[in-house]
Simulated scan of single mutants.
Amino acid sequence: MQHALPMPGDIGLTQISGNVGRLIRIGQWLNGNGFADYQHAFLVLPDGMIVEAEPGGATIRPLSAYDGANILYVCPEGLTDRQRDAIGAAGRRYEGVPYSFLDYLAIAVHRLRIPFPGLRRYVAATGHMICSQLVDQSYHDAGIHLFSDGRWPGYVTPGALFQRLADF
Results as ranks from 00 to 15, higher is better:
V123M: 15
G9F: 04
V20L: 14
I26G: 02
M7D: 03
Y139D: 00
T14G: 15
Y104H: 12
A69S: 11
Q83R: 07
I130R: 08
G127Q: 09
G18K: 06
D10N: 04
I24Y: 03
A36G: 11
G18N: 10
I60F: 13
L102M: 14
L45K: 04
G18R: 03
Y99G: 06
T14Q: 11
Y66D: 09
G96I: 01
L72G: 02
L43K: 03
G143V: 06
Q137N: 11
A108Q: 06
H3K: 02
V97L: 13
G57W: 10
V109P: 02
A90S: 15
N19Q: 08
T157G: 04
A142T: 09
F101C: 02
N19C: 00
D10Y: 11
I50Q: 07
W152F: 05
D103C: 01
A41V: 01
G27E: 07
I60N: 10
H145V: 01
A36P: 00
L112R: 15
H140I: 00
S132M: 11
E77L: 10
M1W: 12
I114S: 05
P62M: 11
L5D: 15
A108W: 04
R120C: 09
D167M: 07
L105Q: 07
Y104C: 06
A124T: 06
G159L: 04
D67S: 14
V44R: 00
V156D: 01
Q28K: 01
Y66E: 02
I144V: 14
L112G: 08
G118M: 12
A53C: 10
P46M: 06
R25L: 01
R22W: 07
V135H: 01
Q2W: 06
H140L: 01
F35T: 06
R92P: 00
L30D: 05
G159M: 02
G159S: 09
A106Q: 05
D141R: 03
E52Q: 15
G154D: 05
G118Y: 10
C131Q: 09
V135F: 13
L79P: 08
D136C: 08
L119C: 12
D167E: 14
A89Q: 13
P62W: 05
A58N: 08
Q133G: 08
D103W: 03
A108S: 15
H40T: 03
D37A: 10
Q28C: 02
M49T: 01
R121I: 07
A86N: 11
G48T: 08
Y38Q: 08
Q28V: 02
F101V: 13
G91W: 06
N19G: 04
Y94P: 00
G32V: 04
F42R: 01
Y99T: 03
Q83S: 10
I24F: 09
R93Y: 02
R120W: 04
C131T: 06
P8V: 09
G56Y: 03
H140C: 04
Y122F: 14
R113I: 06
S17Q: 13
